[in-house]
Amino acid sequence: MTAATPMPLQPNPLSGENYRLTLPNTASAARLARDFVTSLLGVSRHPGLVDDARVCVSELVTNAHRHTRTPLIRVHVAVNRKRVTVAVTDDGGRAGDAGAAALGTFGSMRAAVGPEEENGRGLVLVESLAQAWGTRSGGARYPGRTVVWFTLGRPEPTP
């Protein structure tokens, strides 16, 4: 596996207690998603994951807001004893080529971002913070939807 490929995870990465938030596609969506995830992690005994989760969910919700025409952005959080998985779903409707670059293949996105660029590093940041992350389509049940998810967890104790 290369660094340019999202790390695979079990087929259903959203195991544990499940929480959902549906937001209108507005400029305040990322802030609301951050606050939602912060609250959940605070009460679920994962305070050490809050900072990384806030950064990652902000990046994914901001991408959905800036690069799609979706009316709603959905945030699905699954929390268990060891980890938290957050999935951000949009209804598609890419807004020009910028959306394809932002949510397209990770390798292409990384290659397209130069050191002088102010934007375009969100998924690189998610990759550096998350144990795993990936994308999937909504499939036959939800055609046009895009899901981008990440998993954060407590470090495993070393024997």
Rank of each mutant, 00 (worst) to 15 (best):
G92K: 09
R31M: 07
S39M: 10
N12D: 15
T5K: 10
F106D: 14
S44A: 15
V77L: 02
A3L: 15
A98G: 15
D52H: 13
L41A: 04
L23H: 00
E17G: 01
R20S: 04
P47K: 05
V75F: 09
L125V: 15
R121S: 10
A4K: 04
L32G: 00
N63E: 09
P11N: 08
V113F: 09
L40W: 04
A64T: 01
L49A: 12
L125H: 10
A3Q: 10
T2A: 08
A95T: 12
A64L: 03
V37F: 00
L41K: 10
V57C: 02
A53M: 11
E116Q: 13
V77T: 14
Q10A: 12
Y19Q: 01
V55Y: 05
L9D: 12
G104V: 13
P71L: 05
R69E: 13
V75E: 07
P11H: 04
A33M: 06
S15P: 00
P6G: 07
G42A: 11
L9P: 00
A27C: 01
V124D: 14
M109R: 13
D51P: 02
T62C: 01
F36W: 10
E59G: 07
C56R: 01
V75A: 06
N12Q: 05
S39W: 08
E118C: 07
G93V: 09
P71M: 05
V79S: 05
G104D: 15
Q10H: 05
G16P: 01
Q10F: 02
S39T: 13
V124L: 12
V57R: 05
S108D: 15
N25G: 00
T2E: 07
P115Y: 06
S58N: 13
V124H: 09
P71T: 08
A30I: 04
S15D: 01
P13V: 03
N25M: 01
R45V: 02
A78M: 06
R110N: 04
